[in-house]
Amino acid sequence: MSETKSASLRLLEASEKISQGAEAKIYRTQLHDPVSLSESTTDGDRVLLLKHRFHKQYRHPSLDASLTKSRIAGEARALIKCLRSGVNVPGIRMVDATEGILGIEWIDGKSVRFLLGGGAEDDEEVIEDGDVPEGEDDEAEDEDLLKEYGVSEDALMNMIGTEIAKMHQADTIHGDLTTSNMMLRHPSSPKGLQLVLIDFGLAYMSTLVEDKAVDLYVLERAFSSTHPASEPLFAGVLKAYEKGVGKNWTAISRRLEDVRLRGRKRSMVG
């Protein structure tokens, strides 16, 4: 072990890498190891997910450092805002802005994408439950997956709409709503069954109807591209969302119609 390596990088070396994207690597780790086993602490509390926004070689070092730092800070602020607003999101466990590491609560559960039979996203899940079954009997298998959590597909859609509504009521825009960025917390965990929104790496604050409508539109597209016959599913999401945002629904739904016609990007003409 070299002396120059920072403490957080050494922590990463001792952690299990579970996924890698273009922006960050994801690890699973444990902190706060007790020396004696006499008084055992709650084990679930010690498991963490680490998100490492690694150094990008293609950026100037000082620009890279300041971008990384502000993105870690931004993600942490979005999470705390959601927590205070009662949106189910992972709690924050450690922040090392210098190294670009965000440690968050480990969610014991499965992604909605997986539960709806959209398959594991290349490298996630699989570990525990083996391969996702494919073929005609998909539907029956999905029902079994959901049965373990004690929820119907309709109830799950309802939970999704409710959570997004709470988030939008707090003027937080997720920026990357997909079924992979939602997890169902296992009913046996201390906090019980919950739909948890994850990955706030692209989140930002906005009161604009446009931003909320686009957030919904992105999710609608994600549903239709990953899950067959998604229309009734997404309708269920919107129904719960409508209830959650109350009087704001009229403006948002009208704007959602517009966005569907033109797509996510607004025309800059005129």
């Binding site: 602020r77 705390i80 205070r84 922040v95």
Partner: peptide, 30 residues
Amino acid sequence: PALKAAAKNVTQERIVVNEIVTSTVAMKSV
């Protein structure tokens, strides 16, 4: 809102408070 939602159940409320407070401590540096 997080506390209002959990106000009826003391156990639930404490879980929520502990989560917010712990997360606030974790992100204090940023």
